[in-house]
């Protein structure tokens, strides 16, 4: 089944130059990302997590949006049942990460597993977006992904810690639109991916299905349904193009 040797796809290379390029390309994404990380750290402090617990969560879970959602729904006392509930919550908010890995596979697939699987722990929304942009423009250096990922990791760990310590200073994140960092940041990152009318159909379908799902189904399933329907329309609709 797994004969995916495509002669067209050259095996990705690793270089210091790629590492550096990835690290530099991610920099414009940092201020927005760090503002969000500060909000995550501040939420941890307000919800009464100890500094060590907060540090562990930021390090191991490493997924801000889902951490905020989980903390909003944090159980009074932790039982096996509440662990299952938390697991389901993480599943829905972070299922979009399945799509990150899936879209990296055609490119990074030829690399040995020991190089890819540890690195995947460092995949993030901005890191993935700049990597896909780099790849779409013909880049083939796996160091690009790692370089950006390391910078995001350092920025995230320091900004969440600062946010935790500041805690109360971001008392009303809504006033400075901090709660909108995620959608605004996403919209900006994806603007260069626009490719005219063909993309309009896929994006329109993704938006419509996501909206409909968000009205009908609680939780974060709308990301999954919208993205899958839109992408399948783009991928499989090619034959009918005039």
């Amino acid at each position: 089944m797994s004969t995916q040797e495509s002669p067209a796809a050259a095996r990705p290379v690793w270089s210091l130059a790629g590492l550096r390029l990835g690290a530099m390309t991610i920099v414009p994404a940092l201020p927005g990302m760090m503002a969000f990380a500060i909000a995550v750290g501040a939420t941890e402090a307000r919800k009464g997590f100890g500094l060590l617990d907060s540090f562990l969560m930021n390090l191991m879970v490493y997924a801000g949006a889902s951490q905020i959602v989980a903390m909003e729904a944090w159980p009074q006392s932790i039982t096996l049942a509440s662990l299952v509930a938390l697991a389901l919550l993480m599943l829905t908010v972070n299922a979009r990460m399945l799509l990150f890995g899936a879209s990296l596979q055609p490119w990074l697939g030829p690399l040995p597993a020991w190089q890819v699987y540890p690195m995947l722990q460092l995949s993030t929304d901005p890191g993935w977006l700049i990597t896909m942009r780099y790849r779409a423009e013909g880049g083939n250096d796996a160091g690009f992904f790692l370089g950006g990922a390391i910078v995001v990791w350092v920025a995230w760990m320091s900004a969440t810690t600062v946010g935790y310590l500041l805690g109360a200073l971001v008392a009303d994140p809504r006033r400075i639109a901090l709660d909108l960092v995620l959608p605004i940041f996403f919209a900006v990152m994806v603007t260069p991916f626009w490719r005219g009318r063909r993309r309009a159909v896929a994006w329109g379908a993704a938006g419509a299905v996501a909206l409909l799902t968000s009205w009908l189904v609680p939780g974060w399933w709308f990301v999954i349904t919208g993205a899958l329907v839109g992408s399948v329309i783009e991928g499989f609709g090619e034959g009918r193009r005039r």
Binding site: R96, L99, A102, S103, Q105, P106, W128, L129, M132, R133, A136, L182, P183, F186, A187, M189, V190, F193, W194, R199, A202, W203, A206, G207, V209, A210, L211, T213, S214, F222, V223, I224, T225, G226, A227, L228, V229, G230, S231, V232, E234, G235, F236, E238
Partner: peptide, 20 residues
């Protein structure tokens, strides 16, 4: 087709997240 589907994901994930 699968490759094109995967390549379209960055855009559709973002639209599907942002719009709702």
């Amino acid at each position: 087709r699968l490759r094109r589907t995967l390549e379209a994901l960055p855009g559709t994930v973002v639209v599907a997240t942002v719009l709702p």
